[in-house]
Design a protein around this nucleic acid. Sequence first.
DNA 1: CGTCATCGGTTGAATTTTCATGTATTCGAG
DNA 2: CTCGAATACATGAAAATTCAACCGATGACG
Lengths: 157, 157
Amino acid sequence: MSTVEQHSQEPQWLTAPQLRAWRELTFLMGQLPTVLDAQLKRDAGLSYLEYYVMAGLTEQPNHEMRLSDLASRSSAELSRLSHLISRLERRGFVRRMTDGDDRRFTRAVMTEAGLAHMAEAAPAHVEEVRGLVFDVLDDSEVEVLRSCVEKINKQLH
Amino acid sequence: MSTVEQHSQEPQWLTAPQLRAWRELTFLMGQLPTVLDAQLKRDAGLSYLEYYVMAGLTEQPNHEMRLSDLASRSSAELSRLSHLISRLERRGFVRRMTDGDDRRFTRAVMTEAGLAHMAEAAPAHVEEVRGLVFDVLDDSEVEVLRSCVEKINKQLH
DNA sequence: CGTCATCGGTTGAATTTTCATGTATTCGAG
DNA sequence: CTCGAATACATGAAAATTCAACCGATGACG
């Protein structure tokens, strides 16, 4: 993203404040998942996505969810999630079961080993998130940040 | 990330507002790069990272930068960037030259074709970013968002 | 001035993600 | 009911990323 002028249709560039904000945002989106991934890999042997997929399952009523629901919640395409679940399955953290109601659906279910692993992993990860994000923001900043990000997210469906 | 209690050390979980903000942030970090990647791939045949690497080069004095500088600016590890530059090189968008001063450095330089490709790609991408992010925020929100994200980024080095 | 450590980058193999396609199940029109 | 579409997922090959050496250039130290 630059401020160079060009093209016939006179494209509207970002204003200087917008550009500054955008640079910060792209840096955040690039670095924060990377740093959290490193922490999770080091402390729990899980990737960022693996952790959030298992976290999503864990907080569900029976620690289970349909793959398609899990995919949309975790911003992963179905194929990627399917491979990921296969790897977690091989490690004994989750298992698959076909849905009785509609046999097209597959449900992923946390195993005891998976739940135990998450219980081990969670405290250090939460600590990392607090240290990186919430320790530098006061309550009103948290609210206003959430409000802005929420508005953007609505544009993303 | 859940609110379940466990473990001996009594881990400090996030407060409810912090958790809400964190859910929004993780969704943003997952979805926004994905959506932008899709737009860039469709309209310009470039991945999100390829675009921002080339954008970084383009805005530099001689459209060139050392790989290690480029790597840290674009939140990519050196190895990943090296492979990526090789692919861009094969496509004729950039070329490598070893730095004369210190022959350990490699500099990536935009070619004419690369600059032309970016000039073609930029307007639609900026339009997408504006539509997704800045059209839903007023000026004061942009400032406060930038301020919060900047504080977090400082924690990320 | 050797030599030894470090820096900046490359490379290839292993892992992961993406892409295209295939398969089983269900839904819906006629 | 039957047939054709749509849904939900699986799978294998291709592409990208990560990981672990490796290599040449430079700097530091005796």
